[in-house]
């Protein structure tokens, strides 16, 4: 990808206003992305409602991660539209502006800052000053300390708050990253394979955590693990070869002959 494509077309100063008066928080319409001729995303349209928990499943190479890359500004589509609420054109914002506008992302590989402590990771993620000078002068107030303490409690890492993130297990890093997402106070959370590398018990806890987030946030979960998807009990979108194959609840999806042919080769 050339440098010019990645360059932001617009740099948002303050936090832009999100307008979800029509009940939809994310509109993706007729998106197309190709990498060296391979169509990673093919005429994809997807709508996420405000406060909804949505699962996106699909075989490898279906375009799940590319879809998240487009929404967070990492990849620019060749054509199509992506709107956050009614008014924010995601294709005109860069990664930092999109994050400030209220879209948080958890990566497939948990990426936390290993040389910082758990609490410091949350402090950096906390919604607040983002300009260099303001960050330099930022101090933790009582309210902010409380917020960090609450989040630590929610992700179950309170006893580890002063430990370096490098000492955490894979599952704990996943939780820390979810905690960092919460600190950003996003309206929309994109969660890429949160259950990877987790034990069944950890998976159940993660599922509960994600379900508890829906309502005040919209949550989009990309996942491979069918048991985990079932535990979330939410609408499912199936991606295949870069476009939407089917949408509905998990049971009807699993009966869909088209889906069965893609997944099971029937």
């Amino acid at each position: 990808m050339s440098v010019s494509q990645r360059r932001p077309l617009q740099r948002a100063g303050g936090a832009p206003v999100l307008d979800t008066s029509h009940g939809t928080v994310l509109y993706l319409e007729s998106l197309n992305v190709s990498f060296d001729g391979f169509k990673a995303i093919n005429d994809l349209s997807l709508y996420i409602n405000d406060g909804e928990l949505r699962c996106i499943i699909g075989p490898n190479g279906a375009g799940k991660t590319t879809l998240m890359d487009i929404v967070t500004g990492k990849t620019r589509p060749d054509s199509g539209q992506a709107w956050f609420g009614q008014t924010l054109d995601l294709l005109r914002l860069d990664e930092a502006a999109i994050a400030t506008a209220g879209i948080g992302r958890k990566f497939q590989q948990p990426t936390v800052f290993t040389e910082l402590t758990v609490a410091e990771n949350l402090e950096l993620a906390m919604a607040g000053p983002r300009r260099v000078w303001d960050v330099l002068r930022a101090r933790l107030g009582g309210e902010q300390r409380d917020l960090i303490a609450q989040t630590l409690e929610r992700i179950g890492l309170t006893p580890l708050r002063a430990q370096f993130a490098s000492t955490l297990s894979h599952g704990q890093k996943q939780w820390l990253e979810i905690g960092m997402l919460l600190m950003q106070k996003p309206r929309l959370l994109l969660v890429d394979e949160p259950a990877t590398g987790m034990t069944h018990q950890e998976m159940a806890q993660t599922g509960e955590l994600l379900c508890s987030l829906a309502g005040e946030h919209s949550v989009v979960v990309v996942e491979h693990d069918m048991d985990f998807v079932r535990s979330l009990d939410s609408p499912v979108t199936v991606l295949h070869q870069g476009s939407v194959l089917a949408e509905g609840d998990l049971d009807s999806i699993q009966k869909d002959p088209l889906v069965r042919s893609v997944y099971l080769g029937e």
């Binding site: 930092a96 936390v112 910082l116 950096l124 960050v135 330099l136 950003q184």
Partner: peptide
């Protein structure tokens, strides 16, 4: 300078710059 939150931010930029962008910081300005 490095004892402020900006110091934490510098460490984060050093170790995982692209991740910092998704938190809404402009790493180029840091």
């Amino acid at each position: 300078l490095f004892s402020t939150r900006l110091g934490l931010l510098c460490t984060a930029v050093r170790d995982a710059e692209s991740r910092v962008r998704f938190l809404g910081y402009r790493t180029d300005r840091v």
